[in-house]
Structures are given as C-alpha cells and as structure tokens.
Design a protein around this nucleic acid. Structure first.
Lengths: 196, 196
DNA sequence: TTTATGTATTCAAAAACTTGAGTACAAATT
DNA sequence: AATTTGTACTCAAGTTTTTGAATACATAAA
C-alpha cells in the first residue's frame, strides 16, 4: 500500500495535520496524483503514529478536540527512503467510460455523445485548476530548487493527462458525428429510430 | 461498483467463460480500461448468476470441472442499460510516481532518472501492444458498425494515454538534464523551458 | 437570526480487492 | 521422460476502501 508512503512523503516536506493533508488531496497539488478520503487519511495517520513512523504534537483547540500536527520520525524517513528506491506501478485503470464503449450500442447514440461532452467539460475544468496551480511554479524567477522541479514535473504530468482527455473527447465527438453523416443506409438500432 | 457492469457489458457482446474474460482483461482489449484479477471475476460472475443477471451453460470437460459459459439475461440487460445512462466517474488516480515527485529530494537524482526511464520503456511497450490491437480496427475496409466505432474510440483513448506517458517521460528527463547542467551556477542558464 | 460553510477529528459496518494458495489435466517443449 | 505452459475453476484469510454517519464550534452569508 502506498497511501502510507504518500503521507510520509508529505510529512517529509512539512509537518501537517490530517485535515490539511485531506484538503491537499482534495483540492491542492495532491489531487494530481493521489485520491484518498478523509477517513482513510486519519486512520492511516493513526496507524503510522502507533508504529512510530510519525509523531504528533497536540495543539489544544478551545472547546473541541485537539488538532494534531504530525511530523516524520527518523524511522519514517528511513522507511520512505527505502520505498523511494523501489520501482513504481502505474495507477490502476478502471475507467467507466470504457464500459460505455463496450456496450454503447445498447443505448441511443445521444447518450454517448452527452456523456463524452460532459467528460470534456469536467476535464477542462480540472485542467484549468491545474494550470492555476502551475502558476506558483512558473512565477518563480530565480533558479528553482530540485525539490520544486520534481513537483512541477508531476504537475506537468497531471496537466498533460487532463489536456489529453479533453483532446480525446473532441476527437471522439468528431468521429461519432462523421459516422452519423456517412450513415446513409439505415439499419442498426441505437438512436434516432426515426418516424414510426 | 462497476466491475459488475463491465462483466455485463462483455456478456452483452458475446457469451464467455470466466477464464476468457480474465484473459481479455489481462491481455486483450479489456486491459485498456479495466483491471481485475481472476478471482475477482470468478467471484463476481458467481454473484451475478445468483442474482439472475446472467446464466451459464455448463460445458462438461473430460476429467475436470465444467467450463461455464455465461450469458446475459434479460434482467441483466436491463440493469446494464440503466447503468449506461448514468454519468461516469473518471478512474481513481493513485500514481506512485507522483509520490516520488513529492519526496524525490530525499534520494540521489539518479534514482529519479532511472525510474522515469523505466516507466518510459514500460509505457512504450504497452503502447506497442495497443497499436497492435488497433490494426484489427484499421484493417477493416468496409464501413464499420457503430459498435466497433465505440470500441475503437476506447482503444484510441488507451493509445493516447500511453503515448502521453512516453512523451512526458521524455520531457521530464530533458528537464532534469537541463537542471543538472545549469546547476553549476557559473554557466549560462539554459532558458529553453522545454514545455510550451 | 437562522443557515450554510469551514475547521477538525472519530467511529464502524459493508463492500471490494489483494495475496497466495490448491485442484486437475492437456499440450507443447526440452 | 520430465518440465513448462496453458486451460479452467475454487477457496479463504487478510487488507484496503467506501459509505455514511456523529461531534463541536467558528465564521460568513442570507
């Protein structure tokens, strides 16, 4: 499991609370490459703390539960470094839209078109968000640290990914439209089963 | 869960055994958009059969367990069609290489370079495989069915995805190399910011 | 002033997924 | 003759992830 190592990696950069990490995963840079729910993060942090990979300083909050600021321990640092030397696995792909492609002939063509258009919008929005995040890297006028170069690289990966989705949607809508026009001879079900 | 619907979608095209579906997911077209283990598939098929979404014909094998050829039932077909109208979720991204990016400064630069090179090779190989699968679509000289157009679209998605990874690896290795050379501060800064 | 949103953590059941087997034989390879 | 690879399915423990809460207050918006 690599959620463990993702958390260690975050704490290698700065000490953070579970809430901050969760937010990072949802909206920040973390959203580029890792998804995890709040509960998952809290559970994993508790486990790592028990195992001694991280420790926390409890910040008393007036009238509510303590805020826990976690820091990487030397043991955690070693664990992380050992893991960094291991080969990585590509993210597991489970793409619902692929399933549509398999069975799309069971529904009207409009269903497919609508869904691809929706996805195009969705990825365009994420792309915009990513590009916004990128400005913090491109605005640096001085020579960046290697640290930041790596982070920028990952962000570039995310930007490419989203841009590629948008381009594919465009291309696919075109392909479907082209098919429709060249569709002169009727037959097959799928969509506009014209006038009865 | 959409493994259910992925299996239904496969069986909407043809009746297949669990083994055949598993192989499809590992090497065939299914590998483009869905990953599932053999055990997962067998378990899910058994469950779907119990629920009446699919049924099987047992083919007796000489001296071993029956081969089960599963077919979609009308109930399953309805389930699938209902699901096809739902909006899709993009695949969950959990990219280990992103974690490297976060904490890469803890290890020598060579570790990062080696890993990116490894990934480039890996994705190149998958890309090659995908392009091979594509020939069955491009070799059709006659006007294809909408069914096949959709499948080709998904394959295009997969090809783009892999090609984009390869391109990113290339770009990233260049960026790291550029950083290294301009690193000894005495030298001219290489202003070519690789990515547009 | 009421309501919504944001901060911050915890609990727990259910579903899904991984890991690592085992069974059994056919066909191809060495 | 012995080994490897491929076909074909099953079992089960263990881990991870999802889903859906509850608590408790602060601050901003309506």
């Amino acid at each position: 499991m690599a959620l463990k190592h993702t958390l260690l990696a975050y704490l290698a950069r700065a000490s953070l609370s579970g809430y901050e990490i969760a937010k990072e995963f949802e909206e920040g840079f973390g959203s580029c490459f890792w998804r995890a729910s709040q509960q998952q993060i809290y559970a994993e942090l508790a486990k790592l703390e028990q195992q001694g990979d991280i420790s926390y300083e409890a910040i008393p909050q007036p009238g509510r539960l303590d805020k826990k600021i976690y820091s990487l321990s030397e043991q955690g640092r070693q664990q992380l470094i050992a893991w960094l030397g291991q080969p990585t696995e590509p993210t597991v792909i489970r793409e619902d839209l692929g399933v549509l492609g398999l069975a799309g002939h069971l529904v009207p063509k409009e269903v497919m078109v609508r869904e691809i258009e929706r996805r195009q919008q969705l990825h365009s929005q994420v792309l915009l968000h990513m590009r916004k995040l990128e400005t913090s890297f491109t605005n640096q006028e001085s020579q960046p640290e290697l640290k930041d170069v790596y982070m920028h690289l990952i962000l570039r990966r995310a930007i490419r990914y989203q841009a590629d989705w948008v381009a594919w949607c465009e291309e696919s809508l075109q392909t479907i439209a082209d098919f429709s026009t060249s569709d002169s001879r009727s037959s097959h079900n799928s969509g506009s089963s014209t006038h009865p």
